[in-house]
Structure formats: structure tokens, C-alpha cells
């Protein structure tokens, strides 16, 4: 166990930082699993309502679907921020603390812009959350993305401050790595959400029964 003898020690427990970092990494992985389950619940809701088209009320009024481009711009923003974070982290472990600061600053700015973009997108939808199942599902997917972006904003800013305060160093870069891991996961889950909205528009079920009526009787 070479790692236990070298490197800084974790102040509260006196264990090597590397040991503590392994523990944190497992914790973050478990958080990802849990968060992923929640996101899957939203995707289930989206695809379930899409496939059923209950009461022929899936589509928004006058078939005004949400524009595709904003979804992918938000994915792009998240991906860029993640790349910036990883770039900074890779530099940090090579000993360039400045690269971490630059990377985290870039990531924070990009995430901020993306977050604002997400809010703008949500407020400029051509429909309201009350306008049918598609509207509700899309608004909630965006709402979920917004929450994740807001959390990322906190994390990237924290990494920036911590690096400046000397808490993140080439010997102890683990928190930057964990945040980058989390950002990578957020990229994937937001991209899947965008893919859902791209692929699933018109419901495949054209013969949905009308509410309260036996239309299956010919």
C-alpha cells in the first residue's frame, strides 16, 4: 500500500487523502446511480405518455412542438463546460495549478450561460405546462436539466474557490476529479433527454379512446 505512506493526510481522520478519495468516489458513484434512477423516471413518464396518447391529448395545441435546436445548444454548453473541467484537471495533476483555475473559471462561465439559456428556453416555449402531456413532460425534462445545471454551477464555482484557497493541489486533486465525473454524467443524461424530445414527437397511437366514451365499439 504505497499510497498510504506518501501524500498528504486527511485532516479530520488522519487517513491518507487517497484513501478518503476512494471513499468519496464510491459515494459519488452511488449518487449518480440514484440520480440516474430519478432521471429515468422522467424519461419513463415522457415515453409512456407519448406511446399512450390518452384522450388524444399528447400533442400540444396546433402541433406547435418545441424547437429542437435549444435542447442541443444546452447539451453543447454542458459538454463544453465538462471538457473545460477535465482539461483543467488533467493540467492540475501534471502540476499546473493555473490550468485548473482557468478550466474551472471557463466551466463556471459556460454553465452559467447554459443555465440562463435553459431558463430562457423554458420561458419561450410555444405552449404552457397545462397544454397536454407533451407540454408537461418537456417542461419537466427542462426543469430537471435546470436543476442539474444549477448544481453544476455550485460545484464548478466551489472547485474554483477551493483551488484558489489551496485546498485542491496536484497532490490532492480528487474533488476536481469527482466534480468532473459528475459533470460527465450530467452531459450524458441531458443528451438522452434531448434525444427523447427529438425522436418522440407525434404519438404512435392514433386510436386512443376518448375520455368517458366507449369508442372501441364500432
Amino acid at each position: 500500500m504505497s499510497t498510504t505512506t506518501t501524500g498528504p493526510l486527511y485532516p479530520t481522520t488522519g487517513e491518507p487523502v487517497a484513501v478518503n478519495a476512494r471513499r468519496n468516489r464510491l459515494g459519488v458513484w452511488l449518487c449518480i446511480v440514484s440520480d440516474c434512477a430519478g432521471s429515468i423516471a422522467l424519461l419513463i413518464a415522457y415515453s409512456y405518455l407519448w406511446s399512450l396518447n390518452v384522450n388524444n391529448a399528447w400533442a400540444p395545441p396546433k402541433n406547435t412542438w418545441a424547437a429542437d435546436l435549444p435542447f442541443w445548444l444546452i447539451v453543447l454548453g454542458t459538454v463544453l463546460a465538462t471538457i473545460a473541467m477535465w482539461w483543467g484537471y488533467k493540467g492540475l495533476v501534471k502540476g499546473h495549478k493555473d490550468r485548473m483555475i482557468v478550466g474551472a473559471t471557463l466551466a463556471t462561465l459556460i454553465i452559467l450561460v447554459t443555465f440562463i439559456g435553459q431558463i430562457v428556453q423554458m420561458s419561450t416555449f410555444p405552449f404552457d405546462i397545462q397544454d397536454g402531456a407533451y407540454a408537461s413532460s418537456v417542461v419537466w425534462l427542462c426543469f430537471g436539466a435546470a436543476i442539474h445545471l444549477f448544481m453544476l454551477l455550485f460545484f464548478t464555482m466551489a472547485i474554483l474557490f477551493r483551488t484558489k484557497a489551496g485546498r485542491i493541489t496536484p497532490e490532492n486533486p480528487y474533488h476536481a476529479r469527482l466534480v468532473s465525473m459528475w459533470m460527465t454524467y450530467v452531459c450524458i443524461i441531458i443528451a438522452i433527454g434531448a434525444l427523447f424530445t427529438l425522436v418522440m414527437k407525434d404519438s404512435p397511437n392514433n386510436a386512443a379512446p376518448t375520455f368517458g366514451v366507449f369508442t372501441s365499439q364500432q
Partner: peptide
């Protein structure tokens, strides 16, 4: 809760929601 306070339609069958979605989740 979103159905209750925002009047969205995840579980409201009149507006395209599904009671089976709720039961599954």
C-alpha cells in the same frame, strides 16, 4: 404535485395523462 399546483397533465386523463403511469412509477 406538479399536477396539483401547476395544473400539468401527467396523471390527468382528460389532458393526456395516464393513471397507469402513476401506478407504474
Amino acid at each position: 404535485m406538479s399536477d396539483l399546483i401547476l395544473n400539468s397533465s401527467f396523471f390527468n386523463p382528460v389532458a393526456g395523462g395516464s393513471v397507469w403511469l402513476y401506478e407504474n412509477l
